[in-house]
Amino acid sequence: MAVLEILTYPDPRLKQVSEPVTRFDEALRAFIADLEETRRAGPGAVGIAAPQVGHFQRIVIVDVSGARRPVPNHGHLVLVNPEITAWEGYAVGREGCLSVPDYTGNVIRAERIHLEARDPRGEVLAFDMEGFEARAVQHEMDHLDGLLFLDRLVSRRNDLFRRKKYR
């Protein structure tokens, strides 16, 4: 196990598109363990994507179960070759990134998604998810296509924030 070096913008490698995983072997699982250790070593990251450590395969980790305010979630997720097959609704939310230190900005994401992926052994996974967890998955999956939240920024001012009723 090792904490890997995180690439930070403007490193051009962050724009690289990652390749699908084809071999679900011990090497894959060892890398995933390192990726998770790297996520945990960072400042409160709810997710990480393989290309953030210079490993250009379609692998992301998302875990919003420890969010400051509890949100609906599926626990700790390792998603290999993830695909979003359905989107619904949208919301503005604030995002930061391990690869973009000392900056946060507002980004529009789908509010509900249907997600299909493989687990580290190649078994099929499928989830319906919403809100913060869906946002985290979309943020991480962008890395697989060479996109950062900077590519999706909307104005900090005068944004339409969805009025939410709590209780």
Binding site: G47, R68, E95, L98, H139, K164
Partner: peptide, 11 residues
């Protein structure tokens, strides 16, 4: 008056 949490996602 509307008070909403800002939950910054870091990923």
């Amino acid at each position: 008056v509307e008070v909403t949490p800002i939950e910054t996602l870091v990923g």
